[in-house]
Design a protein around this nucleic acid. Structure first.
Length: 287
DNA sequence: GCCCAGGTATAAA
DNA sequence: TTTATACATGGG
């Protein structure tokens, strides 16, 4: 990958395993706006970034070399060798091979811990366009204004919000969950560093102790908001890719998925199958 | 009107 | 322990 500056932009060329549309639209991120095909505006870490991709060339703007190294390189997970990861998880596994072939340009974004907690609380029983709208509502109402938009609100910025006020922002029945997450965070019970130090099963327990956070949300927070590589190949990422298959309408029998889940996740097979069943039901597959 | 959403808490079996 | 259902709101 070659990096060069051009005016206020940074151009990355020779990039592989990177498809910005797949990365943003696969459901891991809710703060982006599509400007045109393969051209998006992203809000993250109190900054707004435009990203445009033309085959193996990606333009970031505004972006300096220093900013790229300090923030966006890690945000887009460019330090990870995805060929290697894909090789490992698809080894002797035609199912995973098919999953990867379906969306080979997905990379797991490293997003903000607190924002992921609230975002995935909001995501439950909700649709992506609506989730995006709610996150934007929260940012405009409580977040710090930044050039061209609003940062996602910190816990203390959300502290004053009542249930009714949160409801006005279309959070629905999730308002009480947000409130609990806020007070738990203010009480110092959702410290990213302390949770990061725990093994993933313990981290999951900490997260699910928040009213309104279950296994699915906890896993998404760990994967997308904590940069946890220990859940990376073994857990959510695989569910994620599988769900992409469903979204893409690939035709894989439910039975095959269940066998796969049992092999792959062992003691988590029950949960995995629950997800799979849910996805199957959503997409009217196999039942 | 009716059904459903990338779930979770809760009640009931 | 497992299974069924309500939930706010908007869109098909």
């Amino acid at each position: 990958m070659k990096i060069e500056a051009l005016g206020s932009s940074l151009i990355l060329s020779g990039i592989t395993g990177f498809e910005i549309c797949q990365i943003l639209e696969c459901g891991q991120c809710f703060r982006f706006e599509k400007l045109e095909e393969n051209h998006y505006r992203i809000t993250a870490f109190r900054k707004i970034l435009e990203i445009k991709q033309e085959s193996d060339t990606v333009t970031l703007s505004p972006c300096t070399y220093e900013e790229f190294e300090a923030l966006w390189k890690n945000y887009f997970d460019l330090n990870r060798d995805y060929d290697k990861v894909k090789g490992i998880i698809s080894q002797n596994d035609s199912f995973m091979e098919a999953a990867i072939a379906h969306a080979p340009g997905i990379r797991v974004l490293n997003q903000e811990f607190w924002e992921m907690i609230i975002s995935f609380i909001v995501s439950q029983n909700n649709r992506i366009p609506m989730i995006k709208k709610v996150i934007e509502n929260l940012s405009q109402a409580y977040g710090t204004p930044i050039e061209g938009g609003f940062a996602f609100p910190e816990d203390h910025q959300l502290a004053g919000a009542s249930i009714d006020e949160l409801m006005l922002l279309k959070t629905g029945f999730r308002a009480k969950y947000i409130k609990d997450a806020v007070s738990r965070s203010l009480a110092g019970q959702l410290k990213e560093d302390s949770i990061k130090a725990l093994p993933s099963s313990e981290a999951r327990k900490q997260l699910t102790s928040v009213y309104g956070i279950g296994d699915k949300v906890a896993d998404c927070v760990m994967l997308f908001g904590m940069g946890r590589t220990d859940v990376f190949p073994a857990d959510v990422w695989i569910k994620r890719v599988i769900s992409q298959l469903y979204y893409g309408g690939a035709d894989i029998p439910l039975k095959e998925l269940q066998t796969f889940a049992a092999d792959k996740w062992g003691e988590n097979a029950g949960l995995a199958q629950q997800y799979l069943f849910h996805y199957a039901r959503l997409n009217k597959i196999g039942t």
